[in-house]
Design a protein around this nucleic acid. Structure first.
Lengths: 203, 203, 203, 203
DNA sequence: TATGAATGAGCCTTCATTCAT
DNA sequence: CATGAATGAAGGCTCATTCAT
């Protein structure tokens, strides 16, 4: 049964705050140890709860995992849509989108690692439909921008389809190596990726 | 205890054949269902063995996983070394290396997906040292080629370091979307990646 | 991981009571069926627990076995030390010690049978060090008393060393045949053993 | 199915020799590691056989254990009967019997330790009837001698019944401490035990 | 809300035994 | 006689989840 949040506003705020903590902690711990290899005990210990306490916030361990993925994809998708809503030069849109995307990924390192690791789960069950849809729609947005870039400039290899795959690979892989506070800002990274794609037109 | 293969040559051949089958099947099934979510029962069923039979070939479920990763990385590393042994033009070496790499990844789809999914395991235990080392050495080879390319042509962004990350991301991500028999051959894909990196010099 | 008892006193009392029940039941059942031949299922069934419930009280089946042995040896050793602390006539000390010992053995029939049966386990692993030490120290206490008896009276065969072996054999063997409520009290038995040893001086 | 020995005499001799080796090795290894904790693999390895090879000599692991006990008890019982067949002074018979018994026990250290450890098995199943009977009959022989000693001399405490228990304890316990080549011969040990029992008459 | 003892299904692994060679 | 790969039942143990407090 889905646990229901308190209705009194004061309690509700507290509840939401703690729920957020649960999700963020779980993202971090799952990323480190793996979803299956993390017991609910370890999880709740890292949160300062007793094992039973998790179930005040989530129906099950798996629903917690789903929430992690939702909290990764939904805001990204929403912001991407807002960004692309107004018309604009395709290459500028691409750059803006990748900047947004890289920043998001870097700020949600745990979520992202979990998202990648549990790919096989995400691709299968019914409970994962929303996550799958979000990803698919985000990829379509990216694909759309790339197509527009290509139509305008013919700059991309393979009419943009291979470029899409390459871009997805590059950006998603960022969480595996990027550490904040290093030589590069997320902006640098994003621009580096975009420059690679647009290199031909750059000269 | 590590199971020992038969010493008599006739039996040994049979043993090796079946062991290979075990590894390949496991790579496929783990890739589909995830390592932790695949029970030894499911695994052995897919191999036509009874559950206990696995332990003639592997000490434990985890050692089977390690073998999958070894069979992915060791031959790749070895072939890459052979390829880079003779001197040659850096950009040609890069192209040859990426072609080899993409082909290997595509031919070991299951191994590769498992390798990515179980990152958190690989990065931790002592048993994983060899796998970690192989990966690190392979990445160094790639980094070395990219440095040479950059030194000769100054074509890469960020003196090659971001290019390395981008290349790793692109190539490794290939298994997530590439299907053999499609529009692109592995060669096309590899050349597409290399062209992205070398685009500036292409003009 | 070693399970930790509750800290709240009310719960702690309950926990300790049940843990005691677990140990006593296990001693009885192990004595009857043998340690290895008793499954955790059978064990917990006899305790009114589900199979997983054992692990709230003990880290493993083996640690439960260790506890049985500790609960046999530690109090015996302690009481023997208290008994022998004050000076006294050696033969009277011997009699008091054997009375204590026989009573203890008879009251811990299960513990004692288990202790004898699993000798090969006790003598080997590192986890058994404390048990081995306790036994050794108790035997030293007995040996000491016998030496003093012999020094005073020269009554024992073989300057007490064979007498020690004989006494250990007699007393430990008691659990194999003694049934409470029979013709003999534990006191009778103890005195019978001591009389055998001191027989020469008795005339 | 009970394996059947070869009928041709030449082969039969070889078979019997190896079967004997199997029993003796098993007695030693079971005594060290425990019956349940010794796998058939370990056992056969210690015998220079492959795991399947055991079943040429014994129907099952348990039948091997039974044989160990039979080879301990049957010759002892037989020799004891022969010894006691002619009339004789009770105390001399007692001494001769204990000498025989101690020698036997010392020469069958492994068998004896196994016999003691697996008491709970011996006392239960139907397959163990013969072993139980042998032990009971041997104890009756000992009891009979002790009774005769007592009737003649009234030297034993408790009309011989406690003396029986004590003697069984002492002698059986011998295997736990006696090491051949030490200060005492088995004869010394046996006489020591008997002297304890007969101490009163000794003066 | 929070606790933590208890559950019980399911896991990986072991191992006595069989049987084709 | 001997081998050793294979079986498959059973074992100890883990852990997500529940619920009385």
């Amino acid at each position: 049964m889905q646990p229901s949040p308190p209705t009194r506003p004061a309690l509700r705020a507290r509840y939401d705050r703690r729920r957020e903590l649960v999700v963020d902690t779980a993202a971090r711990v799952f990323a480190e140890r793996g979803y299956d290899q993390t017991s609910v005990q370890e999880l709740t210990e890292a949160m300062g709860l007793a094992s039973g306490g998790l179930y005040h916030y989530f129906e099950s361990k798996q629903h917690l995992l789903i929430e992690i993925c939702d909290q990764l994809m939904d805001p990204l998708l929403e912001q991407a849509r807002e960004l692309l809503a107004p018309d604009g030069a395709p290459d500028e849109q691409l750059r803006a989108l990748v900047r947004l995307w890289v920043a998001h990924v870097v700020e949600h390192r745990g979520h992202m690692l979990v998202f990648q690791q549990e790919r096989h789960l995400i691709e299968r069950g019914d409970e994962w439909r929303n996550v799958r849809d979000s990803r698919k729609q985000f990829e379509r947005l990216v694909a759309g921008v790339l197509e527009r870039v290509h139509r305008e400039d013919a700059v991309l290899p393979d009419d943009g389809r291979l470029a899409l795959a390459a871009l997805l690979g590059m950006v998603n892989h960022t969480v595996q190596w990027y550490r904040p506070g290093g030589r590069l800002t997320p902006l640098d990274v994003a621009d580096g990726y975009v420059d690679l794609l647009l290199a031909r037109s750059a000269r």
